[in-house]
Design a protein around this nucleic acid. Sequence first.
DNA 1: GAGATCACG
DNA 2: ACGTACGTGATCTCG
Length: 395
Amino acid sequence: MEIRGVKVDVRYLKELNLLYEAKLRDLEEEAHKLSGESFNLNSPKQLAEVLFNKLGLPVQRKTPTGQPATDEEALSALVDQHPLVEVLLRYRELYKLRYTYVEGLLQSVHPRTGRVHTTFHQAVAATGRLSSQSPNLQNIPIRTEEGKRLRKAFVASREGWVLLSADYSQIELRIAAALSGDPHMIADFQAGRDIHTSTAQYLFGPVSPLSESEKRRIAKTVNFGIIYGITAHGLVQRLGGGLSRTEAQKLIDTYFMRYPAIKSYIERQIEQVRKCGYAETLLGRRRYIPQINSSNKVQRAEAERLAINTPIQGTAADMIKVAMIRLHKRLPDIPLLLQIHDELLWEVPESEIESIARIIQEEMVEALPLPNQVPIEVEIKVGENWLEMAPLSLS
DNA sequence: GAGATCACG
DNA sequence: ACGTACGTGATCTCG
């Protein structure tokens, strides 16, 4: 993956760069006009001075060093109070895209290969995941419309070839279901149900003032929270306004009534780390967590969350690594380009898409069978670039 | 080089 | 009363 590199469309990136350059210039000018002075928009310190002293907007929160926070969460709460805030949010978004991604990628294009060659680290992440550096190709934008435009720059490197992505679906929740043996969660996956919708129905029942999509959103946040070692306060923070700590705790309690084996799994993991000092994945890779017996309550709580999360995240890392090795052997002439934790990106000849996709799907599904008959699902998509990928259905 | 911020799974 | 969800890397400012 490192040596082969990934082809990026340099012309397209240069066009984006000019576009962002112009937009950023306008936004900067607008921001200075609205604030009545010229200052460095990239300095949180100068920005805080303008927002909270000069314009008198209310400080939302302090950073760990006592400085007023100006991050997206703090700014979003102020959008209705001054027109400058929206300009700043847009400026931040585009600045990140231009400098970290557009310029970063352009600078990373190798002069001889014309491709981008990342470095993957195999012994950095404590859970067993890979990490990617110089440039990081595991955090290319996808969540916002503006950010997605970056993905269009990633293209197949040969005429007649296309990109193929293969994603493990809900892999960490499936692993939680399997390791815990929780009957309801297992049944949901076996029936092919949408796990977040299923959780939503249980948490809120049929009579609720909330919309279906709102219920699902909350359930999804709770499900992810479980994997990370949920706390009532953490849930309040992520769900935002309107929810009290007590209500959050109630959601968690209700959740554990539906999925009792998840609750006992969590307790079991914490107990295991207390006893032997490490958490382990399904394949037996260990992470030592000595702070589990700390006299400091905060450190102990952090250690307990690691005890919960590490086997789940680490088992997912085990699984995709096994799949990578097996697929390297089975498809020696099909180049794997990137691994993004639960996704593999390849380039494949257009004429052989179907047969190759079947092999990739089969090996990923079978790489590491989970206990308790929890099924694994892999979604395959194909496209000319990393943005415009269409699902490929294999019957 | 620390801190703040923000991109991803 | 306390501090708060797991794992990463890149960029900027500022002392």
